[in-house]
Each structure stands twice: as C-alpha cells, then as structure tokens.
Design a protein around this nucleic acid. Structure first.
Lengths: 214, 214
DNA sequence: ACATCAACCACCCGAAAGGATGATTTGGTA
DNA sequence: TACCAAATCATCCTTTCGGGTGGTTGATGT
C-alpha cells in the first residue's frame, strides 16, 4: 500500500504551511499540492489528483463548498475533508451535499486531523463531535406541523392525505377510494382547514419539510 | 462533576456482563442498571434514570429502536447509544429518528465504547466509521431524476423551477420574474416536457424525494 | 329521543393549471 | 447571411382546484 496522497485548499498561509508540514512528517502520507483559492484548485488539482483534499470553507472568491462540488464533479473518487471554523448547520449540510465526506473544526488537534485523514481515505466520514451531533439532530426533526395537535384528521381524511402526498389528483384518489370526486373534495376541504393550508402545494411543501422518510 | 450514570439494554448475557464490568472498572462511570429486554427497560428505567443507556437493537420482543423511542419519550434528556451488529441503513436511520444519539457496531473495542460514552454524554454523536459514512451518504442522494441528462433546462426554466419548488403559483412566479403569466406557462410546459411530468405536484414529489434541502 | 360527527354526495362558482398553436425579438453560430 | 435556440407574449380551450352551500345516512353517546 503506497502513501496516501494529500492536497490542501486553504487561504491562510500559516495554516496551510502547518498542514503541509504535518502531512510531510507523517508516515504513510504524501503531500501533493496546496492551493490558496478555489479557482486554482479546480483548474490544477485534476491534473494530479490526490486521494484526499483538505478543504477550507472560507476562501477568497468562490467558497470551499463550491470548490468541493466542482472537484467532486471532476474527480468523483476524490475524498474531501472539510476543515473550517464554521459549525453552523447550513454550512455543514451544504458541504456534505456538495460531496464532502468529512467535516472537522479547526480547533481539532493534529492527531485528530491525521486520524481523520486515514479514516476518510478508508471510506469513513470523520466529523468533529459537535458536527456529528448536528447531523444526527437533523434526523430527529420531530415530524411536526403535520397535524398541529389541535384537531386530528379522521380516518378517511388521513387516507386522502396519504394519496395526496403521493401525488395523486383528486380524481385518482376518488377512484382508489371508491368514492365520488365530490367526497374527496369535501375531505380535502376539511384537511386544508385542519392543517391551515390552502392548496396541495402547501401540503407537499410542509410534508416533505417535516418528514425525511417515506 | 459526579460519575456518569450508565444503564444497559442487551439480551445477550455475556455481553451484558462484559459491558457492566467495563463500566464498573472505569473511573468516572457508574453502572446503574441492566435489562435484557425492552419491556423491562421501559417499565423500570424511568424510575432511576441514567445519563446514558447502551442499547442493543435485536431484543426478544420489542426492538431496541422501539425501546429507544419509548424511553426518549419518557426521559427526553436520556442519551441513547446504540450498540449493535446491524449496519444496514434502515436500522441506522430508524434508530437516529427514534432518538438515538450514537451508533456503534459491536466490533468496537472497549476503549472505543468508553470514549463514545464520554462523547455522547457531552452532547456528541459518536458513530462507527462505517455508520458515519452511511449517514453522510444520505445527504448526497445524488439529486437524480431532476433533469434526466437528456436535455438540460434553460436558464429561465431553471429559475421558474426554483420558484415552483418553493411553492409559488404561476401568477406569483410571473410577478417575481417580471414577465407575463403566459410566459411562465410556456416555461412550465417546457419544464414538464423535459422532466416528463404532467403537474407541479409531480415536480414537488420528485424534487423533494431527490433533495433533502430547502 | 336527541345531538353530534364522520362519511358520503351534489351543485355552483371563479380561479388556476395544463395543453395546443402561433407569433416576435434577440443573440449567437454555421 | 441564414439559421436556430431561447425568451417573450397571446389566444383558445379543457380540466382541475379550492371554496361555499346544502343534503342524507349511520354510528355513538348523552
């Protein structure tokens, strides 16, 4: 097994040098390249693709998240390890969606960074503790707002809602439930009243905001 | 700071005893109770609530996921650390949705388990490497089927699609884009053709199936 | 016996959505 | 230059939605 090849995208010169030295002094890792902005990285990194790139988020022009997206597009096998000071959930989720596999905070110790590099290269997804807990929290989004605890939907109304959120039209729901279109419309009116919405569009938006499952 | 209070829900007697000894022999941890099934845990654990409960998933009658849900309902501050052999994504996501904060595989070493306990008690979300990568992968659900690679949407069409997926009506989109309602309708027709759908409802379904974001 | 409520259905209305056809302008490219 | 795609708008037409009003039945509970 040859050395893991590592690149760095980081605009802070001191930190970039520190990381480079950290990598160069570690057995099993090989420093490949470093870039101080997203453009350089996107243009030049694909010519000599590393195994892992350590990516800052705050960069001069294009963000590290943009850069991650672009690089993953050009080099799908590249593993991106975010190393940043930002721990707000928007940045975390955007980075992961953009294709990052790991997310460390800059306060991490050198040994944490090194073990994260090994972990991410082996298919893991290293995250700082605070990051992981936010990611997990995103799964626990309490399925709220659908049925606001005020007046529960009746059995048939729930059934109609089920078809509604699967994308069926009023007519199709009527057929599936063996009732007339007018009955479905009545149920729908009641559902809209109870959930305080005025269209199936609003239902779908709320439903898929609230539920991350089927 | 007093000792962390730990309980165990695990049906395998050997492993349960091993875990108990592991906890009893560790400075800073205090073993509180152990249960071999979900019913016992749900009935008796709330009478003496620990800080952290180590939970197996495969249990005799009710699963550890059910048990997690019930316990989190009774004791919201309880931290649940899943310890199981299952690493399929359904169990992972269901457990996290049920309120678990950490997810370890049983192959984990004693020191990993101990540090996970500390981590979870401090608000972290410890996960085995393979688990974390599956969780992260769930954010990267490749935004498929929206734009089927056959004919990309034009600039304005993409713009219309953006508003559409935020729930705006045709008229509202027209206003926001400073064009007539007819233009929006034309764009919509083209979008429907390109994405092979027949209504905004289908668009919303596909969009929110594909994207876990706003 | 009476009240209540879910479920069912009908008719009406206006607004929105979806589809077809055709037209004009603009910018870029063969 | 000639052509083409994208964007703009219009007109016509049908269906669907959302909302209002009203009614019948059957089960449940007081």
């Amino acid at each position: 097994m040859s050395d893991l090849r590592i690149s760095i995208v980081e605009d802070n010169n001191d930190l970039r040098d520190t990381l480079q030295k950290l990598i160069e002094n570690e057995l099993g890792l090989k420093f490949v390249s470093a870039y101080s902005n997203a453009e350089d990285a996107i243009r030049r990194l694909p010519k000599n693709v590393p195994d892992v790139v350590i990516m800052d988020i705050h960069l001069p022009f294009r963000s590290g998240i943009d850069c991650t997206r672009a690089l993953k597009d050009l080099c799908p096998d590249l593993r991106v390890l975010i190393l940043t000071v930002y721990e707000n959930s928007d940045n975390i989720f955007d980075a992961l969606k953009a294709g990052a596999s790991g997310y460390l905070l800059k306060r991490s110790s050198p040994s944490e960074i090194l073990s994260a590099i090994s972990d991410i290269a082996e298919g893991g997804a290293p995250m700082s503790s605070r990051i992981a807990s936010q990611v997990v929290a995103s799964f626990q989004k309490t399925t709220p707002t659908l049925e606001p605890e005020g007046d529960p939907l009746s059995e048939r109304e729930t059934e109609v809602l089920g078809y509604l959120t699967k994308g069926y039209s009023g007519k199709e729901i009527a057929d599936k439930m063996f009732v007339s279109i007018n009955t479905v419309k009545t149920h729908l009116k009641h559902i809209y009243q109870k959930l305080h919405v005025r269209s199936r569009t609003e239902i779908l938006l709320r439903y898929h905001d609230a539920n991350r499952d089927s």
